[in-house]
Amino acid sequence: MMKNDIIIRAEGLGYTYLDEGERRGDEIPALSGVTLSVRRGEYLAVLGHNGSGKSTLAKLLNLILTPTEGKLYIDGVDVSSGELSEDEVFSIRKKVGMVFQNPDNQLVATVVEEDVAFGPENLGLPREEIRARVDGALSLVGMTEYARHAPHKLSGGQKQRVAIAGIIAMRPEVIIFDESTAMLDPLGRRDLLDIMDRLCRDEGITVINITHYMDEAALADRVIVINDGETVLDGTPKEVFSEVDRLHAIGLEAPQGREILHLIGGRGIKVDKAALTEEECIAVLYELISRGNINE
């Protein structure tokens, strides 16, 4: 079976909003000239602070918005023309699932398993298939015991896991997480990141995590930094976060350990720029101290 290696490709992708508020009719560019490609099975993080255009990118990838410039290909299909038939849109959305920020506003049903079944039901699958997918998806996110619960009684993290199950049950090739951890407590966040990791490694699903948390981005295979609607950096976490000065220039920070090492490096002491995770940074610091390079 021949399979295209690139699942999402954007060329000079741009989107301009029309202001409907005070300055009616004004054009507000949210995204301009984004070029990127996402490989099948990749774990990608899209990093940017609020208003950088990363949410607009998510909406473009799911055909909620139609790009005003550039080209966007999803699984080889040009979706930027804005002239897709309903069935074409349907088949794209089947491939690209999306988990949003607010867990409450994406749950449709009042029983967990019925909510998970919503997507597969829309796909018109036979009953037994829906049943199997719902059970599989719930066990994948560890919510099997809550199958008959009411979602509004679950915690934020649990709701978000249900929302993910609802997407998994549709068996998409790509799952986009649009700031999905932003409203969760630290524990819920860690669970969710765990699930993202598993989805990518074990299930072979392409994961795109759109976030403004540096430590989340550091977990991905590849990080794309977006600022003012343009891609600024694109590379592995180690490459991206070694550019601490450039990150600072656009109002972002590297993960904490990396920041500390950067400060030390700024004092003329040679430090390993590749250290990224907490453990690696601690190891580097330990070595520096034991070598007597830092005294205070």
Binding site: I64, K94, F100, Q106, V108, G119, G166
Partner: peptide, 15 residues
Amino acid sequence: RADELAVAMECRCYR
């Protein structure tokens, strides 16, 4: 909420 829910439903292939 209504707006977000509508988008979420559309993303889940509701038609």
